[in-house]
Each structure stands twice: as structure tokens, then as C-alpha cells.
Design a protein around this nucleic acid. Sequence first.
DNA 1: TAGATTGTTAATCGATTAACAATC
DNA 2: TAGATTGTTAATCGATTAACAATC
Lengths: 205, 205
Amino acid sequence: MNAEKIPDIIIGRLPVYLRALQRMADNGIKTTSSQELGEHVGISAAQIRKDISQFGEFGKQGTGYSIAYLLDKLKEILKVNRRWEVALVGAGDMGHALARYQGFVNRGFQIVMIFDNDKGKVGQKVDSFTIEDSDKLVERVKSAGIKIAMLTVPAPAAQSVADKLVQAGVKAILNYAPISLNVPHNVKVQYIDPATHLQRMTYYL
Amino acid sequence: MNAEKIPDIIIGRLPVYLRALQRMADNGIKTTSSQELGEHVGISAAQIRKDISQFGEFGKQGTGYSIAYLLDKLKEILKVNRRWEVALVGAGDMGHALARYQGFVNRGFQIVMIFDNDKGKVGQKVDSFTIEDSDKLVERVKSAGIKIAMLTVPAPAAQSVADKLVQAGVKAILNYAPISLNVPHNVKVQYIDPATHLQRMTYYL
DNA sequence: TAGATTGTTAATCGATTAACAATC
DNA sequence: TAGATTGTTAATCGATTAACAATC
């Protein structure tokens, strides 16, 4: 592993490589090349080689990359060769959909708590989870040592919930609320806002 | 409007500006500066001025930007000063959540059709929509002239649905399936994969 | 061995920032 | 007028691509 700082734009591509490689592995493929992987994910072979080589020499001249080995290495680099516990805040439609989503567990994540500030929802079940009161969020998240949260509350509530998550020690927030969050710079935020994503494409129509 | 090609990375920031400006407008604010807007969205003032100036001179020295005017211009540039009809494919949990999502209409989008390939779901209602058979997708989407689709089917089905959407004339796909899609280069794809977004942050934990 | 493909260097290309004249 | 802030230029910084020696 290289000690120099890796650009965030490279880190952002690794999960895409990981996903494609996992798919190949599931299909029984053992080996791939930067060329082939590049065609799958729409990125140049040169860039893929350059990205991967930031972290070590994982390939072999002439034959390419062992998929199983590269998967292991990428999971290790991204720290997803373990199970991260995740708190979900906001038990609306989107929160319910995420709580039931089957795709997290084999990619390194598990939702373990769900919060909502609606007293009418508190105590209700979502799958196997009981919705907890947002008033308990800081205490519960902090004592469980949870570092990752998903935010599916309405926009007007998002900043104050984010503040509580930060206070509870959360360092990574996946934000579904359509608003830019203000957090300390040692806390990462990723934004998922379908309307924003759509608006990014209409320009070209 | 400038005739030169605008970099996609700039286009990608415009919806973020738009969202922040709309929020300011909703709060009754009339005017802002590149400095202030930058603090809201976490982007430097210089970059915001440069981005906006690609499309015209929308500000005033000394006073900044009229929010209402800049909103109008950004909506016009992004072509969201109208209502785009959207087809949704995949009536699972995520599809249901999107079908009920209130945030599309005032940002330029309206879901008008929902498809699923499960004959058991076809004919059922989601809100005011009746789920239609995926077999009818190409015909229905094409004849309605729909250019935008959201994809919430399982990963193994995503590529073949994308192919049908392309065949039906769709030019923009918001893909929730955790897989890279292969489409002609005149078709845009945006990816929303929560696990990928989370994995992009765990590196820093 | 011959063919294929990596890892890396240097060149190119593109994006961001700093600075400031113009001007409201 | 004095202060503030734009739009734009030039400088800097960073990312991507092309090319190829090394080597499996």
C-alpha cells in the first residue's frame, strides 16, 4: 500500500471495479484484464491499470488479474472485508425500502437501527427492526460505536439530524434528503437525490 | 448561451446550485453572491462564478445574483422549466418508494407509467398507477414519446431492460440496479447504488 | 519462444484557483 | 463616492492518455 495520498476520484472508482469484478466472479470467471474490465465499466484500460497500481502490483504481465485476488485486495483497501453497522434515520417510504434492501449484507453493510421522530411510528416494526425515537439517536448510536448512517428524512429536518449524527460520532453519511449538508471536514457525505441526477441528464436531451 | 461545448463536470454542478437557490428562494431570500452560494454547497466562489459565466452574464458587480433570475436561467439551461414524463421499470420496494416520492413534480419530472415483468403484479395499483406488463414497455414508451426512465429491477434483469428502453427511444436512464449498463453513447446513464456510495466512504474510516 | 498484458513514465489535456480590472 | 462583487485572464494544479520496457 502506497503511503502517499490517493486522490478521492480514484477511491470513487474502486467500488465500481469491485462491483464488476464480483459479478464476473459470480459468473465463474477467474481472470480478467484491464482491457476487459474497462469495457465492462466504461473506463479506459490505462486508467484502470493506473488506479489499481496505486495500491500495489496486483496483476501479472501477459495474463492480467486474478479476479479472486483483486477482489480481496480491493475489499481490503476499501475496508469492506468486514461488516459495518449502519444506522438509518427516517422511516418513510425510502427508509422502508432501504431497510428491506437485500443488497447491503454481501457488500459490507448491515442496518442495525432505525429512527424516526414521529411518535406514531416509534415502536412499530420494519421487518425485524423496531423504529426507535430520534430523541435517543445520539445516545444509541454513540454507545453502539456506529460510524455510518443513512439519512432519509425530509429536507427541512436533514441538517439537524446530521448535526446529531456527527455528535454521536458518525463519520460517513449517505444523504437522501435533497439538501447540501454542512458537516466537519473529517465527516464524509455522499448524496443521493434522484431529481438532481435526472436534472444532470436533461441538459443533453 | 455559449456555443462551445460545456464540460459535463460543470453540468453536474448546476442542479446542485439550482437546489440551493430554490431553497433560498423558498426562504424568501432575493439575492445572493458566489461567496454565499459557495458556502451553502461547499464549492469555491471562483468556481461558481466561472461555471455560471459559461452561459451568460447573470450577475451584477457589487450586488451579486438575483435568485429568481438565476433560477430561471438555470432551469432553462437544464431544460427543467417544463414537465418531463418518466417511465419507471421495476415495481419492487424501491420502485414503490419512487412512485410515491413527492419531490419530482416541482423539479421538472412526473412518473407516468410503471412496468414490471411479474404477471402477479401487473394490474395492481401503486398510488394512482396501474402496473403494466414489461412486454408492452417498448410499444408504450415509444408511442408516448418518453425520453427518461428510472430502472429499479434486480441486477440480472437490468441490461435487457436497458436495451428495451433504448429501443423505445429513451435517452436518459436513472439506474438503481447495482450494475454498469452498456448503452449507446447518445444515451445518458446516472447510477444510484447505495452500497457503492457507502463503499466510497469506508476507505476514509 | 511468441504473444499478451502489466506497471510506469512522459506528454497531453482539462479543471481549479488566484488575482484584478470593470462596474454596479 | 466607497465598498462589494462580478466576469475573465493567466497561472497552477491535477487527471488522463499514450507509449513502451519489462516480463509472465
